[in-house]
């Protein structure tokens, strides 16, 4: 099974405001985008374990114009607060790199 890092041209995390974190997964082409969507790997329940968030806090939005899937979760700690580790939220994407896509 291919891993997500082999299928994308961009895979990044970033703040969406100080209280939310958003992952942008931009696929290399439309067929890879369709395949990833159809695989079920991006169902909130499947992402819950990987991202360590309850299913109902995970929002998944496919965006066909950019062959992209967007995943948004609440931040564990608001940007820049004492327990935060990543003010810009830009290094939280690593667990997604090796996600296997059926």
């Amino acid at each position: 099974m291919p891993r997500l890092r082999e299928m994308v041209k961009v895979l990044r995390s970033k703040n969406a405001g100080p209280f939310a974190l958003t992952f942008d997964i931009l696929f290399k082409d439309e067929s890879l985008f369709r395949r990833a969507l159809a695989s079920g790997a991006f169902a909130p329940a499947a992402l819950a374990a990987l991202l360590d968030f309850p299913t109902d806090r995970i929002r998944v939005v496919p965006f066909p114009p950019a062959w992209a899937i967007k995943v948004t979760v609440p931040r564990r700690h608001s940007s820049g607060s004492f327990d935060d580790t990543d003010v810009f939220g830009c290094q939280q994407h690593a667990p997604l790199l090796d996600l296997e896509i059926a």
């Binding site: 961009v10 970033k14 942008d24 965006f63 114009p65 950019a66 992209a68």
Partner: peptide, 17 residues
């Protein structure tokens, strides 16, 4: 490009639409 301009809708936003 159509791709780069469309993809920008994703950036720092919770919803691309």
């Amino acid at each position: 490009t159509p791709y780069s301009v469309a993809a920008h809708s994703l950036y720092e936003q919770p919803d691309p639409f």
